[in-house]
Write a protein that binds this DNA or RNA. Sequence first.
DNA 1: TTAAGAGTAGACAGATCGGTCTACTTTTAA
DNA 2: TTAAAAGTAGACCGATCTGTCTACTCTTAA
Lengths: 186, 186
Amino acid sequence: MNTKRQLLINTALELFYQQGIHVIGINEVLKQSGIAKKTLYHHFDSKDALILAALQQRHEVFYQWLESKLNQADSDESMIEALFYALESWVSGKESVLGHFRGCFFVNSAVEFSAADSQIAQYCQYHKAQVKKLIGQGLQKQSIYLLDMVCLLKEGFISQSHVNQQAADAQACINTAKLALKTLSE
Amino acid sequence: MNTKRQLLINTALELFYQQGIHVIGINEVLKQSGIAKKTLYHHFDSKDALILAALQQRHEVFYQWLESKLNQADSDESMIEALFYALESWVSGKESVLGHFRGCFFVNSAVEFSAADSQIAQYCQYHKAQVKKLIGQGLQKQSIYLLDMVCLLKEGFISQSHVNQQAADAQACINTAKLALKTLSE
DNA sequence: TTAAGAGTAGACAGATCGGTCTACTTTTAA
DNA sequence: TTAAAAGTAGACCGATCTGTCTACTCTTAA
């Protein structure tokens, strides 16, 4: 049965995301989940393996959430709107599947594990690449410049909202991205 | 004599910025600086006090660095260029006063200490507000929208460069910001 | 001169860390 | 039915954490 395994991942993800990875010890994950230490080490080789599993779990949840938010858009304008309104909703705590907003879990993890050769840092890069690809697929206008800029604004929006503990200006992002789009179409 | 105090701050800042705050113990700071533990606790009440001193030190260095980079600009276009070329130079490791780039120390610290009431998180917000003010003072066009957008792009640039361990596209930021500026002037 | 402040080395305390292990019970699939 | 796999509680390991403390030395300004 892998229900215990899943419970461990869910608990670890929640604690790691809300409080940080280094400050949460393995014992805290065990206490919160009510699972024995031996069982944890039966499923995972190490804390790092548990972290990677939590990252994968978060990637799947986030990716599907974003996909569902973007797939109703039928134009580049509406794609841009859908993206930033979704982010605003997330930051404001209205997206229950993503939990209480505390920045991007991947950016946060990369901050805590920044050694270039770390599997954790590499997975964070992978996640960002996948999300960029997803946004790129949604855009009709195939422009690297537009895609780069939308992703840059997205990162800025998330990072700033986190540090300031207050949602940044989604409308400014939308206006800016639309402006760039308009320029490209002329 | 406060040379020991300053050496502690410099050493702590270097280690905290390069490796993270939670992973660096007080003993590592002492070993690297060659200073006795009693002396550290003579100058600082706790590790948190040392962290705050390191944040203040970083703020002063960063603020003056940015000021010097921006004060040659004589138009909004050149301000935008100066800002993003400076950031690109920093990310590429060409700004020796800022050390090897590992993201924004304030964003990183806010990630590690995100409790809303934490002094550390509050200082990070203060730093961001000061930097925003500095950029705002350099812009002739007094537009909240323009300033917000430039800061959003700045955060995106820094965050993305850090996660991807590669400088993001400064030219895309410059083009976008100039485009917004041009629209405002019409 | 002398008292205070700044410095030294490093033992120590109590807690927590990631991880191993023993001894045992429950579940499950061949 | 039975053997393997998955689970339990929690003692234990060595290491490291922040912070305290003793006992001593050096510097410096009144």
